[in-house]
């Protein structure tokens, strides 16, 4: 059965008819052509499909599309500024070598975004714990941790060395 839902998608109000059983990830990919959220496992075990719902990181493969009715969804496509200027996280992922095959990268960055929204200057331990739901097979995570630290230093004013 198709249901009409309305929500905020990357800052814009959208409405769409969606079947009850469709996941948020499938809706983003199939209906909105937003391919950033990737299906790495489909079971919430790899984090490649991570998007933000009301500023919280969720696995979009496990959330039903109908459940975002009235909420706000942010995907990797909505992270850069209006003229395409990269978010500090995106920038530092590039500069620090945190990207290899890149399949996990959008989910990784969205998880990091949620982490920094909640905790602008996390310690390394907090980064590792907060990012634990995102698997990467290429990098060994070291450069991702470095990138998140660098981005947090850019956006953080507490002056703490993390």
């Amino acid at each position: 059965m198709a249901v009409k839902i309305s929500f905020k998608l990357n800052g814009e109000d959208v409405s769409i008819n969606v079947d009850d059983h469709v996941t948020l990830m499938d809706m983003l990919r199939e209906e909105f052509d937003l391919f950033g959220a990737k299906e790495g496992c489909g079971y919430g075990e790899c984090g490649s499909c991570t998007v933000l719902v009301d500023d919280k990181a969720v696995n979009s493969c496990l959330m039903l599309a109908v459940a975002v009715n009235g909420r706000s969804v942010l995907t990797i496509e909505g992270l850069a500024g209006p003229r395409g200027e990269l978010d500090p996280l995106q920038k530092s992922f590039v500069e620090k070598g945190a990207v290899q095959c890149g399949f996990c990268t959008p989910g990784m960055i969205m998880s990091a975004k949620a982490l920094l929204l909640e905790k602008p200057c996390p310690t390394e331990e907090e980064i590792r714990k907060g990012m634990a739901g995102n698997l990467c097979r290429c990098t060994g995570y070291a450069k991702i941790v470095e990138a998140i630290k660098a981005a947090s230093e850019r956006g953080c004013s507490c002056g703490k060395d993390s």
Partner: peptide, 9 residues
């Protein structure tokens, strides 16, 4: 328990 993503929901 699980990940942040899982614990959030």
């Amino acid at each position: 328990l699980g990940s942040v993503q899982v614990r959030n929901v």
